[in-house]
Design a binder for these strands. Structure first.
Length: 507
RNA sequence: GCCCCCAUCGUCUAGUGGCCUAGGACACCGCCCUUUCAAGGCGGCGGCGGGGAUUCGAAUUCCCCUGGGGGCACCA
C-alpha cells in the first residue's frame, strides 16, 4: 500500500511552526522526521513560519524556535532567516503580499467560495444546536445562497465578512504514508472559513497555498492534523492542484497516558537544553520514539539516522515520553565526549564552581564526574565534593575518624603529600598525569597500611571522609588530584586534629 | 455527542501467516568488578486487551467489544 509510493526526486518537505510558544518536544520530533526524510532522499528541508495569528505570534518565539531547531542540529535549506527561491517564508509577509487573497479571489470567481456575513453569535448558536442534535458541528450554508450582487453591495457598505470554502459532496479519502487510506464520510465537514474578516488567511487555506507555492512534495506532521487534511484535500481539488503525499505520525503522551504537558515536567527543547541534555541525545531519543532502524540499534548518530530513515518504519501508535530512557541515552553521549568536548559542554553549567578551581583542578574534576552524569546540570551537585567541603563537626560520618587506625592513616597520608602537585603547578593538559600520580600515591599508601595491619577499606573511607565530609563521591585519585596539595594538606590536618582531640577526650 | 486514528513486556519497539515455547532497549531485581556512588560485564523478572471469523496454521487477515488518543474555531 504505502511502501511503493513514489518519492519524486528531489523531494521537498517543510517544518511549519507557529511562533506562539517555544519548541515543544512533539514539534521537535516533527521537525526531525521531516529533516531525516529530506536528508535521506537528498531533498530540501524548508522552514516556514505560520504567524497568521497576529494576536499570539511574537518575533521572540520565532527566534527561540529557530534557535532550538538549529541547536538540535536540524539545519534547513530555506527559511525566513536565510531566504530561498520560494519565499517569503513567513505567512504574515506572504499575506501582506496578497498571495492568499489572489487564490481566494480565484475560488470566489469560480463560485467555489463565498462571502459569509454571519455573526460570531449566530455561529455559536448554530454549533450548540448541532451539539444538541448529537451531530458534528458544521456551518449551515446560509450565506452560500447569497447572490454575488448582494454580497458585493454588503461588502461595499462595509459589512464585515469572511470567505468560506464551499464543500462539495462525496467522501474524502486521505492516502497516508504511515496509516494507509482513511476515508471521511461525506457531510461531516461543513463549509469552512478560508479568509478571516480581518483579511488574514485561516490555517487550512494558508497551508495549502504555501505548500503549493513552495512546491512541497511531502507533508509530514502530527496525527492531530489528520482531519484537517481532509479539508485541505478539498482545497487542492478546487485549485486543480495535485496534493503532496501525506504522513501523519502519532503524538507524544505523558507518563500517565494523557497529553504531554507542563505538568509532566520538562517538555520543550529549551527545557532540556537548560538541564544539560545534549542535542545528539535528544534527537536520537526523539527519533526512536515511533521510529526504529532496521539494525535495531539504539544509539545512532545523526548521519546513521539519515542513512536508515524510512517513513514506512514509523510506528502508528502513540508513544509515551520516557525520561529514563532519554537519561540513559544522554549519559551515553556524555561519556562519549572526549575531554575537550566535555569541557566545552559542561562549561555553562559550572556556575560558581568554576571560580574555585585552577584550570588543572577543573580538568581533573571534570574527568571525575563525566562517567556519572545523567545531564550536565547535575554537575554542580557532583562537584560539591571538591568545592563545598562539609565541616567534619557537621558530618555524622566523621565519627569513623575517631579511631587509632584512622588517625594513623591520616598521618601516613600527610607524609606522602609531596607526591601531589600544587594547584598552580599543573594545567588541563597535565590533569591525567596528576590523577595517575595520585593513584600511585594511594597504592603506596595502601601497601604501607597493610604492613601496619590497617585494612585498605578503612584507609579509603578515612581519606574520603576526611577530604569531603561525605561517605560517597568521586574516586579518591580524582579527589586528591583535583583538590591538589594545599587543600589536601589542609583537610587532612583538620581531620587529624579532629580525630586527635576526640580520641584524647578533649571534646 | 459525532467523525477519525491507535492497540506486542511497566515504557519505547522488532515482528508483515509457519523461522515466535514472541527478539532488542530503558526501567526494575540479582551477581561480578570495586575504596564509596556511578559506569561497565553477566543473568533474571516481564507482553501479543477480550470475543468471534478466515486458515492445515494467526501477534500477524476480517468483524465486534473494550480501552486510549486526536478532531469537531474568524488557533495552528
Amino acid at each position: 500500500m504505502t511502501s511503493e509510493h513514489p518519492f519524486p526526486s528531489p523531494v521537498r518537505v517543510r517544518f511549519a511552526p507557529s511562533p506562539t510558544g517555544t519548541l515543544h518536544v512533539g514539534s521537535a520530533r516533527t521537525a526531525l522526521y521531516n529533516y531525516l526524510f529530506a536528508r535521506h532522499l537528498q531533498g530540501s528541508f524548508v522552514l516556514r513560519i505560520e504567524d497568521t495569528d497576529a494576536a499570539r505570534s511574537t518575533p521572540e518565539f520565532e527566534r527561540s524556535i529557530l534557535d532550538d531547531v538549529a541547536w538540535l542540529g536540524l539545519d534547513w535549506d530555506e527559511g525566513p532567516d536565510r531566504g530561498g527561491d520560494f519565499g517569503p517564508y513567513r505567512q504574515s509577509e506572504r499575506s501582506a503580499a496578497g498571495l492568499y487573497l489572489s487564490y481566494a479571489g480565484r475560488l470566489l470567481d469560480e463560485n467555489k467560495a463565498y462571502h459569509c456575513f454571519c455573526s460570531q453569535e449566530r455561529l455559536e448558536k448554530l454549533k450548540q444546536e448541532c451539539l444538541a442534535r448529537n451531530e458534528m458541528p458544521k456551518y449551515d450554508h446560509r450565506c452560500g445562497a447569497i447572490s454575488s450582487d448582494e454580497a458585493e453591495s454588503r461588502l461595499a457598505a462595509g459589512e464585515p465578512a469572511t470567505i468560506r470554502f464551499r464543500v462539495s459532496d462525496g467522501d474524502i479519502a486521505v492516502d497516508d504514508l504511515i496509516h494507509g487510506r482513511t476515508a471521511f464520510p461525506a457531510g461531516v465537514i461543513g463549509d469552512f472559513i478560508i479568509v478571516r474578516s480581518d483579511g488574514a488567511p485561516s490555517y487550512n487555506f494558508a497551508v495549502v497555498v504555501d505548500d503549493i507555492d513552495m512546491e512541497i512534495t511531502h507533508v509530514i506532521r502530527g496525527e492531530d492534523h489528520l482531519t484537517n487534511t481532509a479539508r485541505q484535500l478539498l482545497v487542492y481539488a478546487a485549485l486543480a492542484k495535485e496534493p503532496p503525499a501525506f504522513a501523519h505520525h502519532s503524538l507524544i503522551m505523558g507518563p500517565d497516558g494523557g497529553k504531554l504537558s507542563k505538568r509532566h515536567g520538562a517538555t520543550s527543547a529549551g527545557d532540556f537544553r537548560q538541564l544539560g541534555y545534549l542535542p545528539a541525545a535528544i534527537i536520537n531519543y526523539l527519533a526512536l520514539l515511533s521510529w526504529s532502524p532496521p539494525s535495531q540499534r539504539e544509539q545512532l548518530s545523526k548521519a546513521e539516522m539519515i542513512k536508515d530513515f524510512e517513513i514506512r518504519r514509523v510506528a502508528r501508535s502513540p508513544a509515551i515520553f520516557d525520561l529514563q530512557k532519554l537519561n540513559w541515552l544522554n549519559g551515553l553521549y556524555i561519556r562519549d565526549l572526549d575531554h575537550e568536548a566535555f569541557h566545552r559542554a559542561i562549561e555553562p553549567f559550572l556556575g560558581a564552581a568554576r571560580e574555585f578551581a585552577s584550570e588543572g583542578q577543573l580538568a581533573v574534576a571534570e574527568q571525575a564526574i563525566q562517567t556519572s552524569l545523567v545531564a550536565l546540570a547535575g554537575a554542580r551537585e557532583q562537584l560539591a565534593a571538591f568545592f563545598d567541603q562539609r565541616p567534619l563537626a557537621e558530618a555524622k560520618e566523621s565519627v569513623e575518624l575517631v579511631d587509632a587506625g584512622s588517625e594513623r592513616v591520616l598521618e601516613l597520608a600527610l607524609l606522602r603529600i609531596a607526591a601531589l602537585n600544587s594547584a598552580a603547578e599543573f594545567n588541563a593538559a597535565g590533569a591525567t598525569e596528576e590523577i595517575e600520580a595520585a593513584r600511585l600515591m594511594l597504592s603506596e599508601l595502601k601497601r604501607q597500611c597493610r604492613q601496619e595491619k590497617i585494612p585498605p577499606k578503612q584507609m579509603f573511607r578515612t581519606l574520603r571522609i576526611a577530604l569531603t565530609g561525605r561517605a560517597s563521591g568521586p574516586e579518591l585519585p580524582f579527589l586528591l588530584a583535583g583538590l591538589a596539595r594545599e587543600a589536601v594538606r589542609q583537610r587532612l590536618e583538620e581531620a587529624r586534629e579532629f580525630a586527635a582531640a576526640r580520641l584524647r577526650g578533649k571534646v
